[in-house]
C-alpha cells in the first residue's frame, strides 16, 4: 500500500476494478471514440436551428425526453456491469439509478461536446444552446452547456471518465437507500480506484478536488431539471402522460 489505499484493498484489486469499470463504460458509452470522429462534428445550419426553435414547446420537450431516455438506457447497462451493483438489493439499485442516471448522462456529455463551438451532439448534428430555445429553459440549458465545457477542460481519459461515472452512480448519500453501508463500501472502493488511476496517469493533485466540486454541480443540474419538468407538466399534463417515454416518467416521477 502507498498509504492511499485501505488495508483491505490491494493495488491489484484496484487495477482490476479500473479494468472492469473501464470495460463496462466502453461497452455502454453509446458512441465510441471512432464513431465520434466519423461524425465530422457537423453543426446545424441556420434554417435547421430555426426549425427547432419554431417547434411547439411540447414537441421539443418530448424530443429531448426521448434523447435523454435513450442515453439513460445505456447508463442502466453500465450500472449493471459495475462490480457489486447487481448484488445490492433491488430497492437500492432503483434508488441509485433514479438519482444518478441523469447525472451520468451529463458527465458523459463531455464526450460529445465541442468546447470550441459550444455545441453538443443532438439528433444527428452538433447543436448550440439556441437550438433548445423552444423548451423555455434557457437558464438550465446554459448551465448544462457550461457544465459540459468545464468537464471537457479536465481532459479526462475514458478510464477516468468511467471511474468518475461509477463513483457518481454509487453515491451512498442518496435518500431512501436501505443498505447504505453496502453502497458506501462500493463507492469507497471506486473512489480509491479513481485516485489510484489519477496517480498512475500522473494527473495533477487538483483533478480529484475539481471532480469533487462536479458532484454538487451535477445535483444542482438534476434538481433544476426536475423543477423544469414539474413546471412543464403543470401546463401539459396530458402530453407528459401520453407522449413521454415510460422510463423517463418512472425516473423523474412524471
Amino acid at each position: 500500500s502507498d498509504g492511499e489505499t485501505s488495508p483491505t484493498t490491494s493495488m491489484a484489486e484496484l487495477d482490476h476494478l479500473v479494468q472492469v469499470i473501464s470495460k463496462s463504460h466502453l461497452e455502454t458509452c453509446q458512441y465510441l471514440r471512432e464513431e465520434l470522429q466519423q461524425m465530422s462534428w457537423q453543426n446545424f445550419l441556420q434554417d435547421e436551428v430555426e426549425s427547432y426553435q419554431s417547434k411547439p414547446r411540447e414537441v421539443m420537450w418530448q424530443l429531448c425526453a426521448v434523447k435523454i431516455t435513450e442515453a439513460i438506457q445505456y447508463v442502466v447497462e453500465f450500472a449493471k456491469r459495475i462490480d457489486g451493483f447487481m448484488d445490492l438489493c433491488q430497492n437500492d439499485q432503483i434508488v441509485l439509478l433514479k438519482a444518478g442516471s441523469l447525472e451520468v448522462v451529463f458527465v458523459r456529455m463531455c464526450r460529445v461536446f465541442d468546447s470550441q463551438n459550444n455545441t453538443v451532439y443532438f439528433d444527428g448534428k452538433f447543436a448550440g444552446p439556441e437550438v433548445f430555445k423552444a423548451l423555455g429553459c434557457d437558464d438550465l440549458i446554459t448551465s448544462v452547456f457550461d457544465f459540459a465545457k468545464s468537464m471537457c477542460s479536465l481532459h479526462l481519459s475514458e478510464d477516468e471518465l468511467a471511474l468518475f461515472s461509477a463513483f457518481i452512480l454509487l453515491s451512498a448519500d442518496r435518500t431512501w437507500l436501505q443498505e447504505k453501508l453496502q453502497v458506501e463500501k462500493l463507492q469507497q472502493k471506486t473512489q480509491l480506484a479513481l485516485q489510484h488511476l489519477l496517480q498512475k496517469n500522473q494527473r495533477e493533485d487538483g483533478v480529484l478536488n475539481k471532480l469533487r466540486f462536479k458532484v454538487s454541480a451535477l445535483r444542482s443540474l438534476c434538481s433544476r431539471h426536475t423543477e423544469k419538468l414539474s413546471a412543464f407538466r403543470a401546463v401539459y399534463p396530458d402530453i407528459v402522460r401520453t407522449h413521454f417515454p415510460p422510463l423517463y416518467k418512472e425516473l423523474f416521477g412524471a
Binding site: E70, Y74, V76, E77, Q90, K98, L247
Partner: peptide
C-alpha cells in the same frame, strides 16, 4: 414494484448495448 416496472425489467434483462 409496479411504479418502477420498466427499470425492474431493464435490471433483470440480460441486454447488451446492441439490443438497446
Amino acid at each position: 414494484k409496479e411504479k418502477h416496472k420498466i427499470l425492474h425489467q431493464l435490471l433483470q434483462n440480460s441486454t447488451s448495448p446492441v439490443d438497446l
